[in-house]
């Protein structure tokens, strides 16, 4: 069907462009943190809101007094999808989860749950996760999460 007429959306329509993150002055501290193995979050000095993604203006109160803090790395799994195959830049064969992860500090971020089977049985809602870093393309580290095993709890 895909060679003939309008085809349903499929893998051949993946967007391959611009996947390597380009930093801005506002996000540079975040990416410098990642390079050092830290997940840095913005916190508003005025209303104490912790937020993500990074910005020079607080989305809660518009203050421009913003501090950076290092996230605990503890999070829970809010929701996910499972892509049938990861982009080659991940160096992961086969399926790969895309996860909405709720950080202990409050914000939600998009990430992936690694180091476990990429199945609906293994990816349990609200499961405890911890921060890990994996290489992506030319970047030595990006923020990912892995399940906290019962032995670790």
């Amino acid at each position: 069907m895909e060679g003939d007429g309008d085809a349903p959306y499929g893998r051949d329509r993946r967007l391959k462009t611009h996947l390597d993150p380009v930093f801005t002055p506002e996000t540079r501290p975040y990416w410098e943190g990642v390079a050092q193995g830290e997940l840095r979050l913005c916190t508003c000095c005025s209303c104490d809101r912790c937020f993500f993604p990074p910005s020079n203006v607080c989305p809660g109160c518009s203050s421009r007094e913003i501090d950076w803090r290092i996230a605990s790395g503890r999070a829970t799994l809010y929701s996910f999808v499972i892509n049938p195959q990861a982009d080659e830049r991940w160096g992961i064969e086969g399926p790969m989860s895309v996860a909405m992860v709720k950080l202990e500090e409050g914000p939600m971020m998009l990430s992936t749950v690694v180091h476990c089977p990429q199945t609906i049985e293994a990816l349990r809602f609200d499961m405890n996760l911890r921060l890990v870093f994996r290489p992506y393309g030319d970047l030595p580290r990006v923020a990912c999460f892995e399940p906290v095993g019962q032995a670790d709890e």
């Binding site: 959306y9 893998r11 329509r13 993946r14 967007l15 391959k16 462009t17 611009h18 996947l19 390597d20 993150p21 380009v22 930093f23 801005t24 996000t27 990416w31 993500f52 993604p53 809010y78 929701s79 996910f80 999808v81 892509n83 195959q85 990861a86 982009d87 830049r89 991940w90 790969m96 895309v98 996860a99 909405m100 971020m109 998009l110 990430s111 992936t112 609906i120 809602f125 992506y136 393309g137 990006v142």
Partner: peptide, 26 residues
């Protein structure tokens, strides 16, 4: 340099459907 480009698109390997579908399982 956009939000999506720095923090979202890499995780979905460029598969736009995965971003639309994120909350469906939940």
């Amino acid at each position: 340099g956009s939000i999506e480009q720095q923090f979202d698109l890499m995780y979905c390997s460029g598969n736009r459907a995965s971003l639309f579908a994120m909350p469906v399982a939940r």
